[in-house]
């Protein structure tokens, strides 16, 4: 079944080439942009490793993975109209169990330009933090867990917001949130440089931030290689456990909101009375939860 969802996603991607030059241009443009950004981030990680030290690379990767996770969390807001496999309600009429649907949509979400770009960045990160080199055996699986966590969180968010994003008001809200997300790094930059007044060493700042966020799942996963290199096996186990628990949590909520003991997806009521002047329930207040187990 999971393979079927993957094939469906590949068909949807392939058919974009049939939708005219604009769609092809968009696909090529986004591929080039993603490849360029991924290469730049990998370069930064390698610079941190080879011009700095493996410890600096670990700190950079920690922060990077946290921002990566945040990005994936808000991605449904920006990409919902584009990716049809993100919407669980398109499968609502099919006799699929909750588990099948969650696994299938999860696998489909791993296919695409953005997931591949993220995989490249994470592979670069796994190389940058591996010291000695045999710790690659652990840093690569840690990177894979990070990618699963990102996709899982994105799916959980997509399912939670499916109803919201179908409504006009919801899409307006999404645009506002999208703008806030784009402005967030700039705001942080102003805040940090303002508070520091130019007197703080950026490396210290980075180390401080990375240390305080070390036990968030992305931070823990970034530390797997350095903990293994130093022989702290208890910490390695804990790092991986934190990551895996996060993935399981995302998968369990991945696509549904548990409510009154049943699985639901939020959905607006069917188009309300077409009679002129009929009282329409508000799109946001009148949501009806829909079960699609």
């Amino acid at each position: 079944m999971v393979a079927l969802f993957v094939r469906l996603k590949l068909s949807l991607l392939r058919n974009r080439f049939r939708q005219g030059p604009a769609a092809i241009g968009q696909l090529i443009g986004s591929s080039i942009t993603v490849a360029f950004l991924a290469a730049m981030i990998v370069l930064v990680l390698f610079a941190a490793r080879f011009a700095g030290s493996p410890a600096v690379a670990t700190d950079v990767l920690s922060i990077l993975q946290i921002f990566q996770l945040l990005g994936w969390a808000v991605s449904p807001l920006l990409a919902f109209g584009v990716d049809e496999t993100l919407d669980p309600r398109r499968f609502a009429l099919l006799p699929l169990t909750h588990g099948t649907l969650v696994r299938g949509l999860f696998a489909a979400a791993l296919i695409g330009v953005f997931p591949i770009g993220n995989a490249i960045v994470l592979a670069g990160g796994a190389v940058a933090v591996a010291n000695p080199w045999w710790t690659l055996v652990l840093s690569v699986p840690a990177a894979a867990i990070q990618l699963l966590m990102c996709v899982g969180l994105s799916r959980a968010m997509a399912a939670t917001m499916a109803g919201l994003l179908r409504s006009r008001r919801g899409r307006d809200l999404a645009v506002v949130l999208g703008i806030l997300v784009v402005l967030l790094p700039q705001g942080l930059n102003i805040l940090v440089s303002g508070a520091a007044g130019g007197r703080v060493d950026p490396v210290n700042l980075l180390t401080g931030a990375a240390n305080s966020l070390r036990w968030l799942p992305p931070g823990a996963l970034a530390h797997v290689a350095s903990d293994a290199g130093a022989g702290r096996w208890g910490l390695v186990a804990l790092d991986l456990l934190v990551g895996l628990v996060a993935v399981v949590c995302c998968l369990r909520s991945g696509g549904a909101v548990r409510w009154r003991g049943r699985w639901y997806v939020r959905m607006p009521p069917p188009r309300c009375g077409r009679t002129v002047g009929a009282r329409c329930p508000g799109w946001l207040s009148g949501w009806s939860p829909v079960r699609w187990a």
């Binding site: 079927l4 094939r7 469906l8 068909s11 949807l12 058919n15 974009r16 939708q19 049809e84 919407d87 309600r89 398109r90 009429l93 099919l94 006799p95 699929l96 169990t97 069917p270 188009r271 079960r291 699609w292 187990a293």
Partner: peptide
């Protein structure tokens, strides 16, 4: 729901289809 949905075929109002599949692909999937 799985057993019940196996027994029915539905033409819903407000058709939500996979726009980027061909007709043949839609049936196939």
């Amino acid at each position: 729901p799985v057993a019940a949905k196996r027994r029915i075929g539905v033409l819903p109002e407000g058709l939500r289809l996979f726009e980027r599949l061909t007709g043949a692909e839609m049936l196939s999937y």
